[in-house]
């Protein structure tokens, strides 16, 4: 169960975003993508998530090229981009149930409630998402990633607009995921002292 990125290059318009990126993610490992605004962090994550195709280079998962077995790959990966991908006129609970069904994960109501409680969303779970704050929506989206229970997490600036308490809780959850043999690829520009010892890809 390894994700290997080899010699990846991408250009947007006339501008080369990044060139010859190499890295591997093995079970229990976390890779941090860093770079200035506009350096192509989000684009890199989207390419690895299979949403965009790269100009050059190869991505293999478990030894197979990504695009040959995309459905299989999507069964092992959950991606969270800048947008939370929540329907505003549904409640967090309804949103999570739909996302989990789409991701082919069978999760009991008990598990959903437990995760929502850990993140302090119990009182908000029956409110419409349009009435929630940006941080609360982010937490609902992150709860979706956890509940899907996939080995590989690809998170684009996951901790934006979170308060300190939730931030620490989510860091602990990430550590737990790594402890269970999970893999995390994330981008972040702040709080890099929390990522000591993890592989950093500088764009």
């Amino acid at each position: 169960m390894t994700l290997a990125i080899k010699n990846l290059s991408h250009t947007k318009g006339n501008k080369a975003l990044f060139r010859h990126i190499h890295f591997d993610i093995k079970p229990g490992q976390r890779v941090l993508v860093q770079g200035a605004n506009g350096a192509g962090k989000s684009t890199l994550l989207k390419i690895v998530a299979g949403l965009l195709s790269s100009d050059k280079g190869h991505i293999t998962y478990q030894g197979h090229p990504l695009h040959s077995e995309l459905a299989q790959y999507f069964n092992h990966m959950s991606y969270l981009g800048h947008q939370n991908s929540l329907k505003k006129s549904l409640t967090p609970l309804e949103n999570l149930k739909e996302q989990l069904c789409l991701a082919n994960s069978t999760v009991t109501d008990f598990q959903i409630n437990a995760v929502l409680e850990t993140l302090g969303l119990t009182t908000q779970k029956h409110q419409l998402c349009e009435t929630l704050s940006a941080g609360e929506c982010r937490k609902v989206a992150l709860a979706g990633v956890m509940l899907k229970n996939k080995p590989l997490w690809i998170l684009d600036e996951p901790f934006n607009s979170l308060d300190k308490d939730s931030y620490h809780k989510l860091q602990a959850i990430c550590q737990q995921h790594l402890g269970h043999g999970g893999m995390i690829l994330l981008s972040c520009h702040m709080g890099s002292h929390h990522y000591e010892g993890c592989h950093v890809v500088q764009l």
Binding site: L51, M77, S85, K87, L102, N104
Partner: peptide, 18 residues
Amino acid sequence: EEGTLSQLVLSPYPLWWL
């Protein structure tokens, strides 16, 4: 706008079915 279309693409189910 809500970004839910990319969730469909990222689903392991066939996209045409969704």
